[in-house]
Amino acid sequence: MARSTRESILTATAELMRVKGFGAVGMKDVVVASGAPIGSIYHHFPGGKTQIAREALVAAGAAYGLLIPTLVAPHDDLGEALESVFAQAATDMAETGFANMCPVGTVAAEVADTVEELRDATAAVFTGWLDGGTAYFASRGIPPTAARDLTITVVSALEGAFILARSLRDAEPLGAVGRVLGARYRGTTLAPGVSLTDNVGADH
């Protein structure tokens, strides 16, 4: 199914911010990347660049929030699952020439003290990831408090390792974190998985 103009604008903006952050993306960039005329962009987003960025972050955040549960789903050992998550992230970074993996983390660090509307948006996305991840790991048999701690650890480790890997142009940080977490949690059995939509709501 063809994407709507609105969806094309949001997808293009998310991709631009993934690579360039918020400040370096101009409306002309959005026009070129989305193929939408400038008048159409302001028709759909009268609030301009900040509104587009906010909605693009929310939409991208919902998709990225499903990645960890999707990668963990095939595993019944938590340690093996976590090592697999970070190994896949390392492969993806290397294969993309160490491009940034996530627009949310990029923009969050950039605007935390400067654009409150976008800080709120990134905070809401992170909250969704943490709540969704906690619910998912709890559904796989991890006690709720431990599931929360685990989710915070995994998200924090991924975002931090992404920064190191991009700066060093080396996937070693992702591989190292995966091995450490894998060793820490190997032998922790996960209960059979259930549908992701039962644990990660549409608003996350």
Rank of each mutant, 00 (worst) to 15 (best):
L158S: 02
E159T: 07
L57P: 01
T151F: 03
I163N: 08
W129F: 04
A94Q: 10
L164H: 13
A60Q: 14
V155S: 04
A53I: 14
L67I: 11
P74Y: 03
T50R: 10
T134N: 00
L66N: 09
R119E: 03
L71Y: 01
I52G: 06
L130E: 11
P144W: 03
G133N: 06
L66S: 08
A59Q: 08
T153M: 15
D113R: 10
R140W: 01
V104W: 07
N100L: 09
D120H: 06
D76S: 06
N100Q: 15
A73T: 06
L82F: 13
F137N: 02
G79W: 07
L130G: 07
I52F: 11
F98I: 05
F162H: 04
N100T: 09
L150Q: 04
A62T: 12
G65F: 00
E95W: 02
G79V: 03
V115H: 03
A161V: 01
E110M: 03
L66M: 15
Y64H: 08
A147M: 05
R54W: 01
T134K: 00
A99L: 13
I68Y: 04
V155L: 07
G79D: 06
A87Q: 07
C102M: 01
D120Y: 10
G65S: 03
E55T: 00
T96C: 04
V85Q: 00
A53P: 12
F137E: 02
F86E: 11
L164M: 13
G97N: 11
T151D: 02
G105V: 02
G61V: 00
N100H: 08
V58K: 13
T145N: 13
A81I: 01
G79I: 03
A60L: 05
A81N: 02
T151Y: 05
A109P: 14
L130F: 09
A56T: 05
M101G: 13
I68V: 14
L164S: 15
D131C: 15
V72D: 00
I68L: 09
A112S: 08
A161Y: 00
A99K: 08
A157M: 10
A146L: 08
G160D: 07
A109Q: 10
A147I: 01
G141Q: 07
T145Y: 09
I152W: 13
L130D: 12
A146P: 08
T122E: 08
G141Y: 13
S84P: 09
A53R: 10
P143S: 04
F98N: 06
I52K: 04
I68G: 04
Q51A: 12
A121H: 11
E83T: 15
A63L: 07
A81R: 00
P144D: 15
E110V: 02
D149I: 13
A112K: 10
G128Q: 02
T127D: 14
A56K: 05
A121G: 06
I142K: 00
Q88T: 14
A112I: 05
A124K: 12
C102F: 02
A157Q: 05
E55Y: 03
A157R: 05
E83P: 14
E55R: 05
E117Q: 13
F98S: 05
A90I: 01
D92M: 12
T122K: 03
D120A: 12
I142L: 02
Y64A: 13
V104Q: 11
T153L: 14
T106F: 06
V72K: 00
A124E: 12
L118W: 00
T50A: 08
A56C: 11
T145W: 10
R54C: 03
E95H: 07
E110Q: 09
E83K: 10
